[in-house]
Amino acid sequence: MKKRIIISVAALLVICVLLSLLQMLVMPKYTDNKEGALVSEYYDEAGDHDLIFVGDCEVYESFVPAYLWEKYGISSYVRGSAQQLVWQSYYLLEETLRYETPKAVVFNVMALKYGEPQREAYNRMTLDGMRWSTSKVGAIRASMTEEESFVEYVFPLLRFHSRITELTPDDFRYAFRDNKVSHSGYLMQTGVKPQTDFSEGRAEVDYTIDENAWKYLDMMRELCDDKGIELILVKAPTNSWMYWWHDEWEAQVDSYAERHGLSYYNFIPLADEMGIDWSTDTYDAGAHLNVYGAEKLTEYFGQILTEKHGLADRSAEAELAKSWDARLEKYYEERNK
């Protein structure tokens, strides 16, 4: 009888291990769409940041922590992901605060345009990379579209098992180790594709920012208040017809910031002042900045953070400086390749 129980348990364990291995193999590795690998990279560098950025592509393509350190000695990290929705930013921030308590949090307001879950593919890019915690559970519950189920996030094998027939060498290469793609959350783009079309964006059905988006921004603000963290709102300087920032949204965000005493920087009208050249500083015709544009914005914002928000120059701290020197070296290695 005892022998049978032992065999049964062993058999179960073997099955579990095999299924886990299979799951690791079929999970998307995001070697082409690198944005999907961003969220999980944070844990290796978690801690000792004075500034955390949260938001969508407009944070991970616009703000360069390595450059911010080099120019101002500000230690920062970008917890951005593709089409990161407000509730995802909230839960990512909540999770981040388990690891560290920064002095300030910067949230890019573009995601406020969405009041409800959008696409599973984007959800996966943000949620699969999070470590399990109540924050991840909350993020999944807030993010799921109708076609998704919670159990598929707990056991991604259920969702991705069909990939078994389309595995690539990268699936084997990165099954057990991460493919590091970012520089402290910044996803580098060195290409240049000038913006030639400066026409306005497409119309919206309703320009009223959804209550659900406000709800999570309120939660983010209250979370920061509770921890004594300053919440700063920004809008990246990019404004292409594809990702157009409407005046109606601007007025609502402006009013929210004023009502709650938050600093809000809309960098769109400041692009000229910071020296952004749309013929050289974007890699995709104006939708996002490339590294040259991102450095200009980072330098401009760094000065504001230093002068108006009291973020200190910590370059004299030997341990921290050593850690950032290593990150800077990797940053310039890719930038100047």
Binding site: N33, E35, D56, A82, A121, Y122, T196, D197, D284
Partner: peptide, 17 residues
């Protein structure tokens, strides 16, 4: 007369005008 295209974030698609 002219075209312009921009990718969706995360490489999930392209919109062309």
């Amino acid at each position: 007369k002219r075209t312009d295209d921009q990718g969706e974030c995360g490489g999930l698609g392209r919109v062309t005008k």
